[in-house]
């Protein structure tokens, strides 16, 4: 198996180096190019064949979001690479905007050490990496519509998953949910994954469609 080729863009050289070391440590991931701003990322994405582009949002010359829009638009040489946004902002609106412009997910820098590798793999598989803050907005909408008696795709959540989804909707973090239900945070994360899969929010395209329908993303 060949490792997935990654283009990494961040204007802060030391952050870039840190991220690179984390990714290169994984046998299935390898950073093949680095960019120090958005414009350079767009240029490199055009020149170098890559499977995934990891973009910091706050960059000079062209923000990560602008660059992602450019890179996603490029179709001349086959399909555009998958994209993942990296940022400092803990706000679900960035996640929704990322989805809207074609990225697979949004990773908060303060959890990059834990989540980045998993997010890269999910993106490469064509799945969305759902930023935890956005998940509460998504499931809140789901629960609202269910309460209003709208017809929903038939989903069978287990009793535990039902408890977890309600706490997620209230905006609790994995750690807080784990404490509330006296289970481990890892178990909570597994429930989270299962809930997303059952609601059809795992797949990037499906999730984007759902979020547009829910009015969470402007089409």
């Amino acid at each position: 198996m060949t490792a997935a080729r990654i283009l990494l863009a961040d204007d802060h050289a030391l952050v870039r180096r840190g991220v690179r070391l984390i990714l290169d440590q994984e046998p299935d991931l390898t950073v093949v190019a680095e960019a120090g701003d958005g414009a350079e990322a767009v240029r490199l994405a055009r020149e170098v064949e890559v499977d995934l582009v990891v973009l910091d949002i706050a960059m000079p010359r062209m923000t990560g979001l602008q660059a992602a829009r450019e890179i996603g638009r490029r179709t001349s040489r086959g399909s555009a690479p998958r994209m993942l946004m990296l940022s400092m902002h803990d706000n679900e609106q960035y996640f929704f905007e990322s989805l809207r412009i074609g990225a697979s997910g949004y990773v908060l820098k303060s959890v990059a050490d834990e989540d980045l590798v998993g997010a890269c793999r999910a993106a490469l598989r064509g799945e969305a990496f759902v930023y935890p803050g956005a998940m509460s907005a998504l499931v809140r909408d789901y629960l609202d519509r269910k309460r209003r008696g709208e017809r929903m795709p038939e989903t069978v959540l287990t009793e535990r998953e039902d408890e977890v989804i309600k706490l997620i909707a209230e905006g609790l973090s994995s750690k807080e949910i784990a404490q509330a239900l006296t289970i481990s945070a890892r178990t909570v994360d597994r429930h989270r994954e299962n809930i997303l899969a059952k609601l059809g929010m795992r797949d990037r395209t499906q999730l984007t469609r759902y979020a547009i329908r829910a009015g969470l993303i402007e089409p």
Binding site: H12, L14, V15, I22, M88, K109, S110, A112, D113
Partner: peptide, 14 residues
Amino acid sequence: VGQQLTVVLLGLKR
């Protein structure tokens, strides 16, 4: 500050 702390975070992980 944020970037520096990110550098430390990633470095520690490694």
